[in-house]
Design a protein around this nucleic acid. Structure first.
Length: 676
DNA sequence: GGAACTCAGCAGTAT
DNA sequence: ACTGCTGAGTTCCAA
């Protein structure tokens, strides 16, 4: 399938992808300067006479030189709609590049049903060709029937068991059609839990070459048939319960929360009534952002359909976007950006509402017509995509981050730096402590796990039932792709020093150090807190709780100063799913960690009654010493710069006593206090 | 190590 | 019936 991927972009002001632009317009050109500003000297040559100036097509432009179509607007009289709201007469470029008029074609002349051969015909022709064959079509039909049958249930007993254990709720019809924060959170949570469990089962069946597993599609289909979706009524404008800046890792997630319905197509549209043609409601731009110097409030979007050899047509999504332009309707924009943690994957950022400002037609790589739409972000919306660009600048040069106290408070102890930032008050930093990346056992704990470990020399493979470590985890590898934990809140048996598998074994996720770029920052009212510059997948490993392991029985005797930095693993916290009735987490031996004097980033994570992080115990196979760790995983996808919080939990009433603290989390589900 | 290629996949729309 | 800015796996190529 030949798409026009990557052609949508924020118009760059620095570099530009030459291969994509050269055939449309010269990349750099000599723009004559007219003496519009007699005193202007900045672009003069040493000799004083500067008949020409070198300028990138996207600027910046010296005084008197003009940006040129198509990068900054269709020349007024050539525009499809006769006027350009952004270009008033006084702003009209004083000079227009001598563009062949034929390039600025009125978009209406591309209406479907014109002279160009229809794609439908083309496809039928292709089907009738020998290589596709009649037998192939019959197989497809049979497969199609199977697919429809499969929709009735998962057709996999193990997946059915999961469905039972997850106790998926079919949302009431009102919330299926019009959601809220809770229904959106629920739909996303249940999708990801189901997806991860299906992935775990599929992985355990081993891989057969050529067969591509799509746990995302399986989970999505199940939830669609069970009506565990929300905002199913298509609408224009914002979607209840979905906030600007929310992130997604699968297209199906956009569908389940009503942000963007099609599972693949980039343009979603809606026919308000039968008399009117449809208008666009949302678009997904999967362009990536190589040339990101621009402010991020502009998007040049390529239309759908067509390919290297076939013109795009003004129908479906393309027509809807043109209608949105003409009627001044707002369009939701979801931007796809490369996932730093998984370069082959994408993160989708909901970037709020835009308006289509203009449209035109360009020749694509193969010389065929491609529609282009310029969208401008509505003002007054919270930052989203622009924040991502800002963070990239911080990564390139930490000095550009305002309020940095220390570029790396770990002094190199972690694989990634952790910056210390205060842009709120004059506090110079937290009390002194020694940074260690992992837990320190000072004396023998009552470890009961002295097994010798697995013998998987090439790394533990999901499906290998002879692997001791997989057996300890109930026959499954506890992690799925991207180091995401399959089950939240259970004891994980990781490979350890006694195992023969290499350090990159898939069952050593918590041993690879930090994977996301973290920042300790000054909160407004809770002292110091922790957040990430990178997006975090639901279930992804964040960090462990480092500090000095202490005997749980001595906790009550500890100095009260320790309280703020104490992790007591006997605390219980509510399950992620309200419907989850599984028993309390099993700890191999009692454990508490004191991070007052010695610790890592985890000591800065605050409590919340609506947390986005959960802890779980990890026992590494080690026949010499206790090797129990407390690690943190994301409960759901966490956008950059969102404070990371976990539920400190509760103690039995008789133990709460002095270890009860007033809660400041501000969540609607706040219990009022928590245990320390 | 990453870009290019390959292919099964499914919801929604149009017919 | 038909479409598409998927997503994961494989292959290939430039270092």
């Amino acid at each position: 399938m030949e798409q026009f991927q990557g052609q949508n972009s924020t118009p760059p002001s620095g570099s530009i992808d030459k291969s994509r632009v050269l055939e449309i317009k010269p990349l750099r050109c000599l723009v004559p300067i007219f003496p519009s500003q007699p005193n202007s000297t900045s672009f003069n040559t040493p000799q004083g006479a500067a008949p020409f100036v070198c300028s990138s097509p996207s600027g910046p432009f010296p005084p008197g030189a003009a940006p040129f179509y198509p990068f900054f607007g269709v020349p007024g009289s050539q525009g499809p709609h006769g006027h350009n709201p952004q270009t008033t007469p006084s702003q009209t470029p004083p000079f227009r590049f001598n563009t062949p008029v034929s390039d600025a074609v009125p978009i209406n002349s591309f209406r479907a049903g014109d002279t160009t051969p229809s794609r439908k015909v083309t496809r039928r022709n292709a089907k009738s060709q020998p290589q596709d064959g009649v037998a192939g079509e019959a197989d497809t039909d049979a497969e199609g029937v199977n697919t429809r049958l499969r929709k009735k249930g998962s057709m996999d007993p193990e997946v059915d068991n999961i469905l039972t254990s997850l106790n998926i709720i079919t949302l009431d019809p009102a919330r299926q059609n019009d959601g809220d924060k809770d229904s959106v959170e629920y739909a996303l949570l249940i999708f990801d839990l189901l997806r991860r469990k299906i992935a775990q089962i599929e992985d355990s069946k081993g891989s057969s070459p050529g067969i591509i597993k799509r746990p995302d599609l399986k989970a999505g289909t199940i939830l669609m048939t069970k009506n565990s979706r929300t905002n199913a009524t298509k609408r224009m404008g914002s979607v209840p319960g979905v906030e600007i800046g929310d992130i997604f890792f699968f297209r199906f997630e956009l569908c389940l929360v009503g942000l963007h319905s099609p599972s693949m197509a980039g343009i979603d549209y809606l026919r308000v009534n039968l008399e009117e043609e449809p208008v666009a409601v949302s678009i997904v731009s999967s362009g990536g952002y190589e040339d990101d110097v621009e402010d991020g409030n502009v998007l040049i979007y390529s239309g759908q359909g067509g390919n290297l050899n076939i013109d795009q047509k003004l129908e479906r999504g393309n027509l809807a976007l043109k209608n949105s332009l003409e009627r001044g309707k707002e369009v939701r924009v979801i931007r796809g950006v490369k996932d730093v943690a998984n370069p082959s994957g994408k993160v989708y950022v909901y970037d709020g509402l835009y308006k289509v400002e203009e449209s035109w037609v360009e020749k694509g790589k193969g010389g065929c017509n491609v529609f282009k739409f310029k969208l401008i972000r509505l003002r007054g919306q919270p930052e989203a995509f622009t924040m991502w660009k800002l963070i990239q600048q911080w990564k390139d040069a930490i000095s550009s981050r305002i309020g940095v106290i220390l570029p790396d408070l770990t002094s190199g102890a972690e694989s990634l730096p952790v910056s210390l930032v205060n842009d709120v008050d004059s506090e110079k930093g937290p009390e002194y402590f020694t940074y260690v990346p992992t837990i320190k056992y000072s004396k023998e704990a009552n470890s009961t796990d002295f097994s010798s470990g697995c013998a998987c020399a090439g790394g533990c493979l999901p499906g290998n039932q002879n692997c001791d470590c997989i057996q300890k985890n109930g026959g499954y590898l506890p992690y799925v792709a991207n180091g995401v934990v399959a089950n939240a809140g259970q004891l994980i048996y990781e490979c350890g020093p006694s195992c023969l598998c290499p350090p990159n074994c898939k069952n050593r996720v918590s041993q690879g150090g930090l994977k996301v770029r973290l920042e300790v920052f000054r909160t407004k009212d809770k002292g110091w807190g922790l957040r990430s510059w990178d997006p975090i997948r639901g279930g992804a490993y964040i960090c462990e709780y480092a500090g000095e392991a202490i005997d749980n029985s001595n906790i009550e005797a500890l100095d009260r100063d320790m309280d703020d930095y104490l992790f007591d693993a006997t605390r219980s916290c509510p399950p992620i799913l309200p419907s989850d009735s599984s028993e309390d987490m099993k700890m191999p031996f009692p454990l508490a960690i004191n991070a007052k004097n010695v610790g890592n980033v985890a000591r800065f994570m605050n409590h919340s009654c609506s947390p986005n992080v959960i802890w779980q115990p990890v026992l590494r196979t080690n026949n010499k010493e206790p090797d129990l760790h407390v690690v943190f995983h994301a409960i759901r996808h966490i956008p950059p710069m969102t404070e990371l919080t976990y539920d400190y939990g509760m103690l039995p009433p008789e133990k709460m006593g002095r270890r009860k603290k007033l809660c400041l989390c501000g969540s609607s589900k706040c219990r009022g206090f928590f245990a320390i």
